[in-house]
Amino acid sequence: MLKYVLKRIALMLFVFFVIMTFCFVLVKLLPSLPAQQFGKDQALIEQRREQLGYGKPLMVQFYLFIKHALRGNWGMSETLYPMSDVWDTFVEKLPYTITVNLYSMLFSVPIGLLLGIYAALKKNKWQDHVISTGVMALVSVPSFIYAFLIQYFLCYKFGWFNIIVEDYNVPVFSWKMFVQLAPAVIALALPTIAGLTRYTRAELTEVLTSEFMLLARTKGLTRGQATVRHALRNAMVPIFPMIIGEFIGILSGSLIIESIFGISGVGKLYLGAIKAIPPDYNFFMLLSAFYTFIGLFAGILVDISYSFIDPRIRMGAK
């Protein structure tokens, strides 16, 4: 087991390294115009760039990049937030992304599971049809379209929330911030709820028809007991890793939802770095590394969590 985990981690680090090399080389191949805003002092720009290894061979630059990056020094922002440290800005923005995604997970996981279980228990009755139709629509329609509906109805017509997040001077974990983030939380939660409901329903209906459920009923368990103790536990095997994957995914957040609701998080930072003229390469490198890492890490964690949950899979890995 440990060997398997270590092997996976080593492979992940290798893939991560290759992808970062790819990004680094491609970015270095781009014309690098000195940004006008950057202090407007050519000498300063030159000095800073010399520090980063500009003008040296690409390999040396790459070595310096890795050396600095490992110490948490990802360079300075040139166009987006001139003269501020890229890493510090990133850390500053991260809480908003995490908060909004965390809230959405806190709502969507219980609701999604409950709806899925309910639909599975009421299979082929009208309750199931209503839930399944709703889920079908919610899964298909992209989240930015709900975001428009939420923005138009909840924020504009009913006036319950602000259209975009305006006040950043309140603590991240406060009621006021929660109200500001609420529309984005709803927009993010809906597709997760739908996905989870659909998955739970499919898994649970499969387990409910299996033979050991009949045995459980025969030995005298009530329907509720059999469902909770036997069916649900077995159905959770594939569902739980999915939830873990989503929890890791909350770090990377959603570019679209953040830009629609004006949440100043990582996604908006990434978009800003790309759209800046010239693009802010240091932000781009850091955030690309971040997104790549999150994606790879989530994949590993999901695979490993399978074997932690299900003893059968654990046996197979040996």
Binding site: L255, S288, Y291
Partner: peptide, 11 residues
């Protein structure tokens, strides 16, 4: 193809 699939699409 493993390495390729690790690159985020946006990047």
């Amino acid at each position: 193809s493993d390495i390729l699939s690790g690159i985020p699409f946006t990047v």
